[in-house]
């Protein structure tokens, strides 16, 4: 049997590389960890998988009452409830996965100190685990759209692209937050506020058309702007696909992935010492 030689050196301060091959070697562990987290979340609850869709439905009802009926926010011609639902589904996946990725290393504590595995598995587990809920929610979204008069158009072929941008954003910035949070717990306390601020900086309860034209370019720096507006465009046919917003957003998103993963890999050797 051929035996590979593994060399482990003290970190030199230079970038250690991503070692994606190793993550591939650990794919079974990744899938088991994802499956464990999903199962553990729903085991022994009578609503079970129903909880995957509960936050989206309840938020849709609240927003429809408050912003649709009371404040009467413009919804680009679509029924406000559908309009809100199309924004809430991707938003919930983003906020949940972003938070889960950010606290994935901090939350792994003891695990980190007892066993070796590529640490990138932790944020990936968090991202994929929340993805399970997202799949269920997407299914429900399609059913709702079919029943209540959504107007999907051929742009729907770009849906995977939007989801990719969403996942890259929450993974990239989430990893950056995760690596910082291991050292500085301050971030743990901040995450909730950051999420709320981000929500109002995204067109979840209001349309992009309310944002003044001259600020749109800054507004689009938030990758979720393009994603949510794109969702509405392809599912409700309210406006043409906002390629400008999506373009700017995806650049920011991939910068996040680059910075996040670099910083994560760079600080990784110290995780077990300080977690």
């Amino acid at each position: 049997m051929r035996k590979n030689k593994t060399i482990v050196r003290a970190p030199t301060g230079r970038f250690p590389g991503f070692n994606l091959g190793e993550i591939w070697d650990y794919r079974e562990m990744l899938m088991l960890m994802v499956w464990r987290d999903v199962k553990v979340r729903y085991v022994q609850s009578s609503l079970g998988i129903g909880w995957a869709i509960f936050p989206a439905v309840s938020q849709m009802i609240i927003y429809t009452l408050v912003f649709g009926k009371l404040v009467r926010i413009d919804s680009d011609g679509a029924p406000y409830s559908l309009f809100a639902f199309c924004g809430i589904i991707p938003w919930i996946y983003f906020s949940q996965s972003f938070n889960a990725v950010a606290s994935s290393v901090y939350g792994a504590g003891g695990f980190l100190q007892k066993i070796y595995f590529p640490r990138l598995l932790l944020p990936l587990t968090a991202l994929l685990e929340k993805g399970f809920d997202f799949c269920v929610a997407m299914l429900v979204l399609f059913i709702v759209l079919l029943l209540f008069g959504g107007k999907p158009n051929w742009n729907i072929v770009f849906l995977p692209l939007l989801i990719l941008i969403l996942m890259v954003t929450s993974l990239g910035y989430g990893m950056l937050a995760a690596a910082i949070m291991v050292h500085f717990r301050d971030l743990l306390h901040l995450m909730g506020y950051v999420t709320i601020v981000l929500m109002y900086a995204s067109p979840v309860v209001y349309p992009v058309s309310l944002v003044p034209e001259e600020y749109k370019i800054y507004y689009a720096l938030n990758p979720m702007v393009g994603v949510i507006e794109g969702y509405r465009s392809m599912l409700l046919s309210t406006r043409p696909m906002p390629w400008d917003l999506i373009g700017i957003g995806s650049v920011v998103s991939f910068i996040g992935l680059l910075v996040g993963s670099l910083y994560f890999r760079w600080t990784e050797p110290k995780f077990a010492d300080v977690a």
Partner: peptide, 9 residues
């Protein structure tokens, strides 16, 4: 490989 050494290999 749970913790990294400060120096050596």
């Amino acid at each position: 490989r749970i913790v990294a050494p400060t120096s050596g290999e």
